[in-house]
């Protein structure tokens, strides 16, 4: 399965990572049938450069918003500010959404231009990491 999204949506995640750098950013990708329709920004309740936790209260609001719009949760994105865009042990240990794509934006240097920022997506199911194709249209 692939995740389809527009270049502007990829840029929106990168800009979020850039604004929150050096702490990790996080948010949700909502859409239908594998196609992202909206990027929903969240706040990292950990306020950490090493971990993220989407604020649970905000998560509830975002879930209700998706429900009201009839959109499905397609992905969960976050940034790595010190490491490549590949799920860490922490990412795998805390992956409770086997049907969502985990999208990671790697932004070590906040001056990196968008087209040189690595963004990759993965499924994490029962501790097994599988890369998922990102189709940028």
């Amino acid at each position: 399965m692939a995740l389809e999204l527009a270049r502007a949506q990829v840029d929106a995640m990168i800009e979020h990572a850039r604004e929150d750098h050096p702490i990790e950013c996080c948010g949700l990708l909502a859409g239908r049938g594998g196609r992202v329709e909206t990027v929903l920004r969240g706040h990292n309740a950990d306020r950490s450069p090493f971990t993220y936790r989407l604020d649970p209260q905000e998560q509830l609001q975002l879930f209700k918003q998706m429900d009201a719009l009839g959109l499905d949760l397609l992905g969960i994105y976050h940034s790595h500010t010190q490491s490549p865009p590949y799920p860490s042990r922490t990412d795998v240990a805390k992956a409770f959404y086997p049907d969502a794509a985990y999208v990671i934006v790697s932004l070590r240097d906040k001056a990196t231009p968008n087209d040189q920022v690595d963004v990759r997506a993965f499924r994490i199911r029962d501790g097994v990491i599988t890369e998922e194709e990102l189709v940028v249209t």
Partner: peptide, 19 residues
């Protein structure tokens, strides 16, 4: 009542040890 599994993780390379 809403049940919400956490959305969490992170690079954690130079952070505290993984739990």
């Amino acid at each position: 009542v809403s049940i919400l599994p956490a959305m969490a993780g992170g690079g954690a390379h130079h952070g505290p040890p993984d739990p």
